[in-house]
């Protein structure tokens, strides 16, 4: 799954926003935040599919914590974007 397709969807970007706000969320907490803070009232199944896409792109990771499953944000794959298109070539010059 490529990172560009993963972040092309506004719901998936909202999921990442919420996981940056607090890492280690259950599906229930994520869905509550999406509906209450973003007006996104997709079904839990639909959100699970979005999470699968984000996980395949390496943008989130999941872990069983006791009896519940939590989701964490992983920013690593986004670094490739900044490396491919630096903010400005001048900036690169300055770093030298």
């Amino acid at each position: 799954m490529d990172v560009y397709r993963a972040i092309a969807d506004p719901t998936r970007r909202a999921i990442l926003d919420e996981l940056v706000d607090r890492s280690g969320q259950s599906l229930f907490e994520l869905c509550s935040r999406l509906i209450m803070k973003h007006g996104i009232n997709s079904s839990r199944q639909a959100i699970t599919q979005h999470l699968d896409v984000l996980e395949a792109a390496g943008l989130i990771r999941t872990r069983r914590e006791g009896r519940w499953k939590l989701h964490w944000f992983e920013g690593g794959p986004l670094k490739a974007i900044g490396e491919r298109w630096p903010i400005s070539t001048d900036e690169r010059e300055l770093e030298k």
Partner: peptide
């Protein structure tokens, strides 16, 4: 008590979830 979700401000309500 173990909380899976600490107090979270959801706009009109604040919620938390425990085991």
């Amino acid at each position: 008590v173990r909380f899976v979700q600490p107090p979270t401000d959801l706009g009109p309500v604040i919620t938390a979830v425990f085991d």
